[in-house]
Amino acid sequence: MRDASETEKAVRLYAGTVYGIALSHTGSKADADDVFQETFLAFHSSAKVFHDDEHIKAWLIRTAVNMSRRAVCGKHRRAEELDENMPGGRFEFAADEQNDIADAIRALPEKYRAVIWLHYFEDMPVKDIAKALGARESTIRSQLMRGRERLKELLGKDWFEDE
């Protein structure tokens, strides 16, 4: 069991990263809240020794991705989908085009979502994403490229052109 202050510090540092991953997968505020809390509770309960903050971040990212998958899977398994209009349903961004982008990301094959989110929204370089997700850099590059192509098809515009 980790010291609460250590967990709180991690929450303060990486809440956005974890929540963003959760939202990019689930699209639901309620589910993202769950993933967010489950991820940090897992961190709190874990006896894993971390070398530094980057190590913690990588672990949280991987755990958040896994938790998100689980959340999506559980949702898909329910006989009836939750009504997105229910409270806690679909997360609404402020602008329509932002919602379109979020929807498009969620429409991607799952393996592209976290990669796209981490690279374009978290500004993480390929190398760091590869390390966090336990994949090869070449795999991440390939996923970024394919994800971007899909998004371009879905959105009719390449929002994700590297600057």
Binding site: M1, A4, T7, E8, V11, A15, G16, Y19, G20, L23, S24, A32, D33, F36, Q37, F40, L41, H44, S45, F91, F93, A94, A95, E97, Q98, I101, A102, Y120, F121, E122, D123, W159, F160, E163
Partner: peptide
């Protein structure tokens, strides 16, 4: 970072109440 992504990232944050609820509920055992 693309401005629109930056704006989305800013919005994609948990409510403060969610964060606080988590922190307050951290089990000691």
């Amino acid at each position: 970072m693309n401005k629109i992504f930056e704006d989305m990232k800013t919005q994609a944050m948990p409510d403060e109440s969610t964060v606080n609820a988590l922190i307050e509920s951290l089990p000691e055992k």
